[in-house]
Design a protein around this nucleic acid. Sequence first.
DNA 1: TTTTCAATATTTGTCGGACAATTACTGAAT
DNA 2: ATTCAGTAATTGTCCGACAAATATTGAAAA
Lengths: 250, 250
Amino acid sequence: MDTKQILTFDLPDKVLTSLPTGAVKDTVEQLGKSIVQGVYETDAVLPREEELVEKLNVSRTVVREAVKVLCGKGLVRTARRYGSRVCPFESWNLLDPDVIRWHDPNSPRTARIYAEATDMRIIFEPEAAALAAKNASREQRDLIVAAAKGIDPKHGDAAMIGADYTFHATILQASGNLMLSQLQNIVYAVILFSYSAGRFAAPEEKVVQRLHVGVAEAIDNGEADLARKRMHDMLKANQAMAREFAAIAK
Amino acid sequence: MDTKQILTFDLPDKVLTSLPTGAVKDTVEQLGKSIVQGVYETDAVLPREEELVEKLNVSRTVVREAVKVLCGKGLVRTARRYGSRVCPFESWNLLDPDVIRWHDPNSPRTARIYAEATDMRIIFEPEAAALAAKNASREQRDLIVAAAKGIDPKHGDAAMIGADYTFHATILQASGNLMLSQLQNIVYAVILFSYSAGRFAAPEEKVVQRLHVGVAEAIDNGEADLARKRMHDMLKANQAMAREFAAIAK
DNA sequence: TTTTCAATATTTGTCGGACAATTACTGAAT
DNA sequence: ATTCAGTAATTGTCCGACAAATATTGAAAA
């Protein structure tokens, strides 16, 4: 693999939503986002099926199938004569790719989720890095190294985010654990959050790249303990910067 | 709280399934289990909607709503003229409570999932224990201690499983991180798997109880580092025993 | 006035049928 | 053997009707 050629990385066009394109998918997206972003508060009743039919210009069939999908993700609960109500926050499937994605990075309401997601990353990603150092394929090691080098401001924000995500997602995949691998949705959400509204530490971008390359090289060399430590230190530093930024923003 | 009174713990009757009781829920359960347990292999087409209508004795409306829910969990994918096909394993939402629960503990096919779930537990439960030592409320600390003491063979299998689950679930809740808390579904599945078919190490039950009590006391005393270490050692020991058992079974 | 209880209204749940849209499949023509 | 148009099969969407459950209401009773 020619790493010289791989300098930019696209964002995943479809981080996931298994529903096929169509009216149901659009309706799920719209209702899901509205709920997650707080348009309807906890225990609030959604508009009646009939009203949603008018508002969204779809048939009742579509509305019902969409609401059922949201039930399956723990967002709403329905009953006869009771309406469809928003479930309390704790019962949402926060690890569902869609539910994660629907959070609005710019809403102060979701700040808690991102803080907790960051804590999750600090727990899982160091171990994933250690596993990747042991289990990654040749191609995965190359990709991890190339992505780390691609985290460079000179490529623009989009390419930087893409490289950042590719780096972390590939490490999770290379761990060989499917559940661990699925946490890349959390990583993706946190990265988007970090970069949106200029939350990333602009002046220190070179430091960020250097830290990523350090982790990548440890993985590439199969040094599990070193990879674990470097990933941990990097995420901790990142968390500290984010907290500092949040404090200033207030 | 009188810990003397809390000696037995019930299993959670409803570990979760947000769908309300009714034909749709039953259909989701049946189809979901069939897929997860391997009745339909990857890329296999499900019976046509019309056939499912006959087989399950429900209307097409119900079948469609159920299939849509399964789409939302990444299990199936539908298209016109294409049928509803089982998605490849990697795209399943393995962290979804229902998807976890639908795995059959007695199927050799799902052994991999339980092995990976066990690896996951070793990663996040020690950290959860450390967080719980810092953040747990008085009631949670009492409950954790009581549950640990309740892991006693003299109460029978069901009560033992209940205490075991209560112990781990309460620790995750006490961590204060909602995402971490939702991983209790993984713990529940692994515990059921461990106990089913006599996989647990019967002669050493007292050791198991002692180890749990050790973790509980560390949490109760607010000793985060000690709690982390003890939880880690306990899970590692448990994993080693499980592997030994699996090797013998072959 | 408060409580109880039956009647009512409202909302989702389920059913059935019809047609649209997409695409895998078939068979003829090249 | 290949291409291509036609056909058939399957899910997608719409509609209308009624069933089931329950929140609400109002009257009767204490």
